[in-house]
């Protein structure tokens, strides 16, 4: 335990020494480090404009340096805190140190002068560096601006080209559309003309057909009218003949149901009987004979004055049935 305590004291001693060294170093370091503290702001500006690959790489290396510096600064800060603690201890040794201090002050004055020189040199150097740096930055910005402009121009050109192409395409399409439209219109016109022609032809054909049909129907009508007229006259005379024959037929009293006598009769012009033939006998001679007699007794048969109708009334078949 005691040994450890001792070891701690030893270690503490060492630590104090170390601290002192460090503090010195720190003060020195702080000065040089203060030049770089403002760096992040500059970096930000550069970052915003860096596009070039190399530039990016440079930037990255710069950043690395800065990070390193920051790290160092941080460490220093921590050390300073420790220093303050150490200074509290050192207060006790102050008196002893006063003398040392005076000595040191002279030394320090000398040193300060030296430092002033050095500082001036550093300031000049810093100024130069800053100038260089400013120039580099400006160049960088110019390049970036240039590049941006190029890009913009390029983009504008691209845009313009695209627009032109689009316009051109649009124009072509419109042209194509118009051509198609024109073609269609021409076709439609042609088709309409053909249809019109066709309709006209059709109309013409129909009219011709209608005329033909009219003529035909007139002829048919005339023929039918004539046939109807003759038919009417014939039918009328058939009825008259039938009545007349019936009136002259003395049906025999012994006629029985089912008896039927069929006669074929041909007439002479003028209505006299040319010939009578029993086609089918009733089986009763008197029945047949009375039928034949009726045909003769009815002569001359009623004849139409119309020669055509009269000609149609020449040959007859009579079927005689009992009452």
């Amino acid at each position: 335990m005691k040994k450890q305590w001792i070891e701690n004291i030893i270690a503490g001693s060492y630590a104090v020494a170390l601290h002192i060294i460090l503090v010195v170093l720190l003060f020195m370091g702080f000065d040089s480090a203060s030049e770089t503290v403002v760096m992040p702001a500059a970096v930000d500006i550069v970052q915003a404009t860096v596009i070039d690959e190399q530039q990016v790489l440079d930037d990255i290396s710069d950043r690395k340096d800065r990070i390193e510096e920051q790290k160092t600064a941080e460490t220093a800060r921590l050390e300073a805190i420790k220093q303050k603690e150490a200074e509290a201890k050192a207060e006790k040794e102050k008196a002893a140190l006063e003398r040392e201090k005076e000595k040191l002050r002279i030394e320090q004055e000398k040193q300060r002068k030296l430092d002033q020189e050095r500082e001036n040199k550093i300031a000049e150097q810093k100024k130069r560096d800053e100038e260089v740096k400013r120039k580099v930055e400006a160049e960088k910005a110019r390049l970036a601006e240039e590049k941006r402009q190029v890009e913009e121009k390029k983009a504008a050109e691209l845009k313009k080209q695209k627009e032109q192409e689009a316009q051109k395409q649009k124009a072509e399409e419109a042209k194509k559309l118009k051509a198609e439209k024109d073609r269609k219109a021409a076709e439609e016109k042609k088709r309409q003309a053909a249809e019109k022609q066709r309709l006209a032809d059709e109309e013409k054909r129909k009219k011709a057909e209608a005329d033909r049909l009219l003529q035909e129907s007139l002829a048919t009508e005339e023929r039918e009218r004539e046939e109807r007229r003759i038919s009417g006259v014939v039918n009328q005379h058939m009825g008259m003949i039938r009545q007349r024959i019936k009136r002259y037929w003395s049906e025999p009293g012994n006629a029985t149901k089912g008896m039927q006598c069929t006669l074929r009769v041909s007439l002479l012009p003028g209505g006299d009987v040319r010939q009578v033939t029993v086609v089918k006998s009733s089986g009763n001679a008197i029945f047949d004979r009375t039928a034949e007699s009726a045909v003769y007794k009815a002569a001359p048969w009623p004849q139409p004055s119309d020669p055509k109708a009269a000609a149609a009334l020449r040959d007859f078949t009579f079927v005689f049935n009992p009452k």
């Binding site: 004539e226 037929w249 049906e251 040959d315 078949t317 079927v319």
Partner: peptide, 24 residues
């Protein structure tokens, strides 16, 4: 006219049916 009469001439005979004679 001849053609018109054809239907009639084609119809060989006119058939007349008589049922029952005179009562006289």
């Amino acid at each position: 006219l001849f053609a018109m009469l054809m239907p009639w001439q084609a119809r060989a005979e006119l058939v007349i049916e008589i049922t029952g004679g005179s009562e006289a």
